[in-house]
Amino acid sequence: MKLQDIRDILGAEVITGGNLLSREVSMGCGADLMSDVLAYGKSGSVLLTGLTNQQVVRTAEMAEIVAICFVRGKRPDEKTVSMASSQGLPLMGTTLPMFESCGRLYKNGLRGVSEYGE
C-alpha cells in the first residue's frame, strides 16, 4: 500500500510531505503512548496516533517510520511540522478516530507489526 492510498482511505489531509506520497507502507501501527511508539513503531510502518508532540516526530525518525497520520482531528504545532518537513517525514491528519482509522486500513489489506511477513 502507498501513502496516497492511506490518504484516500482515511480521507486525510496532507500536512507536509505531499511529494512523498508514492512511498510504500508495509505495516500499520496505532499508538497513543510514547513508550509504545518507541517499542512498536517499526521501520516501514505508518504510525496512527493522537500524540502531536515533537518527540513523536523525533521517535518516528529514529524508528524509520514512513509517515505519521494524526487521528481524531489532532494537529501538531508549526514547529513540529517544520521539523518533520526538514526530515522528509510526511504528516497527515484525519478526523476519523483511532478505531475507525485502523479498521479501514486493515480492511484494505494493510497488516500489523506482528502479522507482517507471516
Binding site: 478505531f99 486493515y106 502479522e115
Partner: peptide, 9 residues
C-alpha cells in the same frame, strides 16, 4: 498479544 492496529483491524 496483538497490537492495537491488528486487534482493531
Amino acid at each position: 498479544p496483538l497490537p492495537t492496529f491488528e486487534v482493531v483491524g
